[in-house]
């Protein structure tokens, strides 16, 4: 049984357009994924694909004007606001996207100690800082005094000192030097080896593939493909969705090939397949209706042409 099961999640926002006129914008639709204990699942997608909102929906920290439907199950039971209150920060931990999530008026050493488990939080915090090559004086720095890469390491440390069963890492690596990325990846791998589940939300494809078991690809707020990490190889011939292939081929170490066009805005979506306007192999059928997710070669894909 999966530790976390997200089923047909949708998230929409109420916005005021002019005066008191309200307008609902749907930013996530029909998003499903699951993650097992001991597993690392990477979530790929560009900004605006709903990656961070997915993390916030699982943690129940969406803004007030958001409306959510679909279900999220944790450990077999529905994950509702009441259960979240008991689990969040203990069994379920977030590695947030930016240093803005830290308390700006609290020294970072103390912030990391506040989530540490065990009898001696100071020792736990010190040893994890040492591992991330954060010197002693960093304990007494405030978040604004950290460089970008140091801040990232502090954020990863907050999750590493907890004994969470589900870690949601929201873009933990951009701007980190390769040695620090390797150390962060090692931490996540270790947590997974100890039986935790790690949801690794990122656009750093190369880093994620080094540790991920499976990959979920998001586009315009929906799941496009679920693949094994090993499917990302060569020219991407084992990948299922044209978007996933384009993403893979756009990497500088592959072909650095830019696919034309941009991801559609949530208030201006095409009626058919969300990728059809940018897809070289789209047909009339693609423009008419949204494809459903279907199983294909031990993964799944939302494309009628994939084979």
């Amino acid at each position: 049984m999966a530790l976390l099961e997200v089923n047909k999640l949708s998230v929409s926002f109420i916005q005021y357009t002019s005066g008191l006129r309200q307008h609902e914008v749907q930013t996530i639709r029909d998003l499903s994924l699951s993650i097992h204990a001991g597993e690392i699942v990477a979530v790929f997608g560009s900004s605006g694909s709903g990656k961070s909102l997915l993390a916030h929906a699982i943690l129940g920290i969406l803004p007030e004007n958001a409306r959510m439907s679909g279900t999220i199950h944790y450990d077999g039971n529905l994950l509702d606001a009441y259960r979240l209150l008991a689990l969040r920060g203990k069994e379920i931990a977030l590695v947030p996207q930016s240093v803005n999530y830290l308390d700006p008026l609290m020294k970072v050493g103390a912030q990391v100690r506040s989530t540490a488990v065990g009898s001696d939080p100071v020792a736990v915090q010190r040893s994890i800082f040492k591992r991330y090559r954060l010197k002693d004086h960093v304990d007494n720095l405030y978040p604004f005094q950290l460089s970008g890469g140091m801040a990232r390491r502090v954020l990863v440390a907050t999750a590493a000192v907890s004994d969470a069963r589900l870690i949601i890492a929201d873009e933990p690596t951009p701007g980190m030097h390769s040695d620090d990325v390797a150390e962060a990846l090692h931490t996540f791998k270790e947590m997974a080896d100890n039986g935790s589940a790690v949801l690794f939300i990122t656009h750093d494809i190369e880093a994620a593939l080094r540790i991920a078991d499976r990959v979920v690809v998001l586009y315009a707020g929906t799941t496009f493909e679920i693949a094994a990490a090993e499917d990302f190889m060569g020219n991407g011939e084992r990948l299922r969705h044209p978007y996933t292939k384009a993403l893979w081929q756009a990497l500088p170490q592959n072909e650095f090939k830019p696919n034309l066009g941009v991801q559609p805005q949530p208030n201006n979506l095409p009626t058919g397949c969300l990728f059809a306007p940018r897809c070289a192999s789209s047909t009339q059928a693609c423009k008419e209706s949204r494809p459903e997710m279907r199983d294909l070669r031990a993964g799944s894909v939302r494309c009628i042409h994939a084979s």
Partner: peptide, 17 residues
């Protein structure tokens, strides 16, 4: 300075090109 670090691979390739 890390001009495309926060962007996905396709957007990065588009911008650099």
């Amino acid at each position: 300075d890390e001009m495309t670090t926060m962007l996905d691979a396709i957007t990065q390739a588009q911008i650099w090109q």
